[in-house]
Write a protein that binds this DNA or RNA. Structure first.
Length: 852
DNA sequence: TTACCTGGCTCG
DNA sequence: GTACGAGCCAGGTAAT
């Protein structure tokens, strides 16, 4: 055999025989080719995905090719036949069409179709079968006809195999003599990095043993758990070393994950979970969107290292035996819906939604390891991978490694069952082990225990709110969109005239070129990257002397309204429920607040009249919208935590707090306070919550720095407790590395611990703000739990539909409105007793806009 | 074509 | 450099 394969063209089966590697060596061979080759080898063995222990990129790339080749192999036989037999998925045909596009780049006469075009076709025709049946009617953007593509499927296969310099059929006999696939990507990457591709081949041909032929870690599930590949990892945990806690240590050979595909095996596991004190549970689904997700399988773990996966809805041409989904769920339902059987999950809210979609109300959710991790370290990521790495020293399998990412991500139901078994069992196993490690750490601190209990209770309420959704009047938004669109056109016309040429008003770059290059306006400020800034403050300054900036400001604000709100919200309406279902991230904000996304309902406009109109589209489906918000919550908390007697008295006396503080600061009676004085007091009140300095205050209310300094000095003179508190909290944060809310939630600032310098100033401000924002978050969470419990206890029909940091919004039947308006302030006020009253304001209306 | 970043703007 | 905490949009560009 040749020893220098890199210099020769070697048919693949020869390479296979010589090296045990399916290597194609052609002049100019590149990384793509080796990846493709490895993928071909994998598919030749019926492998669907390759698990890597080390670098993700190569395995990921290989897996993408595996997917393409599997698809291609399926479809080249007979497109319609494949559809009928295997139910090829839309994303697979997209991939296939992409493959055509990729390959056709250099091939004259083969039209190119990208995933967007393919997706558009599929959207129009719904299913792949429809698409194929209507092939002659379907035209792409460049006029190409889908029918033309179908006969070319085979051509494409030819082109691809030519590119690989072999026929797949030739390849397979060569592969048959090989042992099962062995890929150690650490070694691959190292060799590739050290020697480059060609040298690597030489190494291989000279010393094939350098690559382990049988490395079960790479192929068979089971090894990525149990030991950390990187022993030098240093934990950032504030609570303990990264070294695995004794209870969590499971030596790899004791780990056993199994697929449950027989009724006997299922019964055995049902016995186990019935008897268990606590069971870790995890679901696998078709979507990351919990309301869209459909159950694909579920995993259980009652003892560290011993877990099972029950595949329920996997698909694919060679999917193994699976138990009937409905029968399995029927057998499990008594256990799932029993609060006598305690469960631990990682982000239980997600799984609760998945089960609700199967008409199963999951009960007994007593523990949630995501919330445990969040309560312990709210400033760090709480996904399973990162948490397991931090607390167990274990590198679990990332979701992306199983399903890919981005546009090429596959659905979990396409993942091979054995691979899914490993991944899903591991999740349940790690959940249980995390619980064993984290739970005692929380129990050791009263404040953390209380915070965790609150988070678990909040999770249940959030599930309800998300599922309730909120009714949106799309017609209202469409009309607004239309009006805004016309105004945008008018503004554009005027702006082009002033600029002397058309330009994209949405592009900061083009706006900058027009203003500062063409029109030679003065540069007020530069952005972080050095370009002249065109933000609101700059344009407002320029608008005093020039007409165009004013138009730009108006255009900006209207374009934002249209694109983010009036255009977007109607598209977010769930087809099944006719409502908008936001997602509340419970472990995303370091201070303990919630975050809302898809869509974000916590930043719906309110400050301008035209923006506020968007809220008119948030309507009631039962009768009225009722909204209740804590008034001046963070300032009240400042009064409480600082213990400043003057500030406490201001709140105790009630009335207009900004006017009262203005009277204090400027030494006049409340009714003598001027509008300017009240504004200054308001700016200081808000600013000090954020740790604002004189520069910030001066900027904010348009006064000189020295005037701002004078105001702040007077403020602190009148409220000395506030000044002392701010100094105290900085010291505390620096000494212990964390601060606490009133209820004992810990908020960490590791960068402050023992540090000093310019960069710490920002962290200091965050530390000053955190107890207030965090305590406010605690309070509203307590309120949500109290109110939802009350709604259920009173058996009311009212739905809680939104939380906006200090506000709760309800969809209320007419006959419950009076009760809600009477009881909400009481319920919200009684969740805690601070040194200041906790008052709230309640409003009602037929929509959210009116309810304020 | 897609993925990621920047600048800008919305909210509490 | 300069006020805390978020999410989302359009444009622009780098990577594929």
């Amino acid at each position: 055999m040749p020893t220098d394969l890199a210099s020769q063209i070697v048919p693949i089966h020869q390479a296979v025989k010589a090296l045990g590697w399916p290597v194609i060596c052609t002049p100019g061979v590149e990384a793509d080719d080796i990846i493709g080759t490895l993928a071909v080898r994998a598919t030749g063995h019926g492998v669907h995905t390759i698990v890597s222990t080390g670098d993700k990129d190569l395995a990921q790339l290989v897996n993408e090719h595996v997917e393409l080749i599997n698809t291609m192999n399926n479809e080249r036989q007979d497109v319609q036949g494949v559809i009928d037999r295997y139910g090829v998925r839309p994303d697979q045909i997209i991939d296939y069409l992409m493959l055509i596009g990729d390959t056709s780049d250099n091939i004259p006469g083969v039209p190119k179709v990208g995933p967007k075009t393919a997706a558009k076709w599929l959207t129009e025709y719904g299913t792949l079968a429809e698409l194929i049946l209507n092939a002659d009617k379907i035209k792409g953007v460049a006029g190409q006809n889908l029918r033309d593509f179908i006969p070319r499927f085979d051509l494409t296969r030819q082109l691809v195999t030519v590119k690989l310099d072999c026929e797949i059929d030739d390849l397979i006999p060569g592969l048959d003599s090989l042992k099962p696939l062995a890929l150690d990507s650490d070694t691959l990457i190292k060799l590739y990095d050290d020697y480059g591709f060609r040298s690597w081949l030489r190494e291989l041909s000279g010393d094939p043993d350098r690559i382990p032929q049988q490395d079960s870690r790479a192929v068979k599930p089971g090894s990525t758990v149990g030991s950390s590949p990187n022993t030098e990892t240093v934990s950032t945990s504030s609570y303990g070393p990264a070294a695995p806690q004794p209870m969590a240590v499971v030596s790899p050979e004791l780990i056993h994950y199994e697929s449950v595909t027989t009724w006997e095996a299922l019964d055995k596991w049902i016995d186990k979970i019935q008897a268990a004190e606590l069971t870790a549970l995890d679901t696998e689904t078709t979507s990351l969107d919990p309301l869209q997700a459909s159950l694909v399988g579920l995993s259980l773990c009652v003892e560290a290292g011993q877990a099972c996966y029950i595949p329920l809805a996997h698909r694919g041409y060679d999917v193994g035996p699976q138990l009937d989904k409905q029968q399995v769920l029927a057998k499990l339902k008594p256990w799932l819906t029993s609060d006598k059987h305690a469960k631990v999950l990682h982000n239980a809210k997600y799984d609760a939604h998945v089960f609700l979609s199967e008409d199963i109300g999951l009960k007994g959710i007593e523990e949630d390891t995501m919330l445990q991790a969040y309560v312990l370290e709210s400033h760090l990521r709480v996904n399973m991978q990162d948490v397991a790495q931090r607390w167990l020293g274990v590198t679990g399998t990332p979701y992306e490694e199983i399903c890919g990412k981005g546009a090429k991500q596959i659905c979990f139901d396409e993942v091979a069952v054995d691979l899914a078994t490993h991944y899903a069992s591991e999740d349940a196993d790690l959940t249980l082990r995390l619980h064993q490690v984290l739970r005692p750490l929380i129990a050791a601190h009263e404040g953390l225990e209380a915070t965790y209990a609150l988070e678990v209770a909040t999770s249940r309420v959030l599930t309800i709110i998300e599922r309730n959704g909120v009714a949106i009047d799309s017609d209202v938004l469409h009309k607004q969109s239309h009006g805004l669109g016309e105004r945008l056109l008018g503004l554009e016309e005027k702006a082009y005239e002033l600029a002397g040429q058309p330009f994209n008003m949405n592009s900061p770059k083009q706006v900058g070129e027009i203003l500062f290059d063409r029109m030679q306006l003065p540069v007020v400020r530069k952005t972080a990257s050095g370009a002249p800034s065109t933000d609101e403050a700059v344009l407002t300054t320029l608008a005093q002397d020039y007409p165009l900036p004013k138009l730009l400001l108006e255009h900006r604000s209207i374009a934002k309204l249209k694109s983010t709100y009036t255009d977007k919200l109607p598209r977010m309406v769930n087809a099944k429920t006719g409502r908008v279902h936001t997602r509340y991230a419970q472990a995303a904000v370091i201070t303990g607040r919630l975050a809302s996304s898809d869509p974000n309902l916590q930043n719906i406009p309110v400050r301008t009249a035209e923006g506020r109109r968007v809220r008119d589209a948030f309507v009631s489906s039962l009768g009225k919208i009722v909204s209740a918000d804590y008034s001046q919550i963070e300032l009240r908390i400042m009064a409480h935590v600082s213990g400043d007697q003057n500030l406490i008295r201001v709140f105790a006396e009630g009335g207009d707090v900004h006017r009262a503080t203005a009277a204090e600061v400027f030494g006049v009676s409340p009714d003598e306070v001027t509008a300017d004085q009240r504004n200054a007091a308001k700016a200081i009140n808000f600013g000090l919550i954020y740790g604002m300095g004189e520069f910030g205050l001066a900027n904010n209310i348009g006064i000189t720095r020295s005037a701002a300094k004078a105001y702040i000095d007077r403020y602190f003179a009148r409220y000395p407790g506030v000044a002392e508190y701010m100094e105290r909290i900085k010291v505390v944060a620096k000494e212990q590395g964390y601060v606490e809310t009133v209820f004992g939630r810990r908020l960490s600032f590791p960068e402050l611990k023992g540090a000093r310098g310019a960069r710490t100033a920002a962290a200091e401000r965050a530390a000053i703000n955190a107890p207030m924002q965090g305590t406010a978050a605690d309070l509203i969470k307590k309120a949500m739990v109290a109110v939802q419990d009350w709604l259920e206890q009173k058996k009311l029909k009212t739905l809680m539909v939104m939380q906006v940091h200090d506000e709760l919004v309800f969809d209320v039947p007419e006959d419950e409105v009076a009760l809600l308006k009477a009881e909400l302030p009481r319920l919200m006020g009684e969740v805690a007793s601070l040194d200041v009253p906790l008052t709230s304001e309640v409003g009602e209306g037929s929509n959210w806009g009116q309810a304020h």
